[in-house]
Amino acid sequence: LLGKVNRLRDVAPSGLANALDNMLGWDTRTRIDQIAPTSFKSPAGTEHHIDYAAEAGPTVELRVQALFGLDSHPLVGTNRIPLVLSLTSPAGRPIQTTRNLPEFWRGSWRDVAKEMRGRYPKHNWPDAPWESVASLKTKKAQARNA
């Protein structure tokens, strides 16, 4: 890894990550990935980086439609810490942050959906998102694929 490197800054971050992975071994690396995955896979099938350095705790930013169909809150770690979900509009603008998705769906979702229907009428804003199919496509695109 180090070869002719004189300064740590000359080592690529990916090189350090690879060296650490090699030192840990497959079993340990697999266990770390189970406890603290690097990404969250949404019901829509999209992968989202988990920011463990975020001030609020492990945080994922994603479009709210990617979570449709999910009625339990995603958790990480051995203590099962809730991910902070930073939910965005179809344009990527922040609309809500939550540590309790089922409560959000049954609480402030109605107000959020009402406002978003006016701003983004081409997208799906169901009354019961936990029962809906996750999709980042417009209603028209979803109908074509149905």
Rank of each mutant, 00 (worst) to 15 (best):
I35M: 09
S132T: 12
P126Y: 02
A113R: 00
L24G: 02
A91M: 15
K137C: 11
W109D: 00
L83R: 08
L70H: 03
R93I: 10
G118A: 06
P90F: 06
E47W: 06
G3C: 11
S39F: 01
S86I: 08
N124W: 04
K114T: 11
L136I: 08
A146T: 13
D111F: 11
S86Y: 14
S108E: 14
L1C: 13
A128D: 13
L24D: 07
L85Q: 11
D10G: 14
W26P: 05
F68Y: 15
P129W: 06
Q34P: 00
S39N: 06
L75I: 12
L75D: 08
R63Q: 13
R9Q: 13
Y120P: 01
R119Q: 13
M23F: 12
A54M: 07
L16M: 14
K122Q: 15
K114L: 12
E131G: 03
R117W: 05
R7P: 02
A113N: 00
W125M: 05
T59F: 00
E131D: 13
D21L: 12
A19E: 09
E131M: 10
K137P: 02
S135R: 06
S42W: 00
A91E: 13
F68G: 01
A113Y: 00
D10M: 09
T38A: 11
N100M: 03
W125F: 04
V11Q: 10
G45I: 01
V133C: 07
D33A: 12
N6P: 05
D10R: 13
Q96T: 08
P94N: 08
V5Y: 09
F104V: 01
K114C: 05
R31T: 08
S89D: 15
S72P: 00
E103Q: 11
R63P: 10
A56M: 09
I81Q: 15
A128C: 08
I95G: 13
E47S: 09
R117S: 10
S39D: 08
S39K: 01
S86N: 15
T28F: 05
D27T: 07
L136Q: 06
S14G: 09
P102N: 02
R110V: 02
P13K: 13
S132E: 14
Y120S: 05
T97L: 11
Y52K: 03
L24I: 07
S86F: 14
A113W: 00
L62C: 15
K137E: 13
P43L: 06
I81A: 10
W105C: 03
V112E: 03
T138R: 05
E61M: 12
P43Q: 04
I35S: 05
E55C: 03
A12Q: 12
T78V: 15
L85W: 07
K122V: 05
I35H: 03
V112S: 05
R7Q: 12
P58Y: 02
E55S: 07
V84E: 10
Q34Y: 00
S135A: 14
L24P: 03
G25E: 06
E61S: 11
P37W: 01
S108C: 04
W105P: 00
E103T: 07
P58Q: 04
V76R: 01
K139M: 15
H73W: 01
L24N: 09
A134Y: 03
L101G: 02
P82T: 04
L16V: 15
P37K: 01
R93L: 14
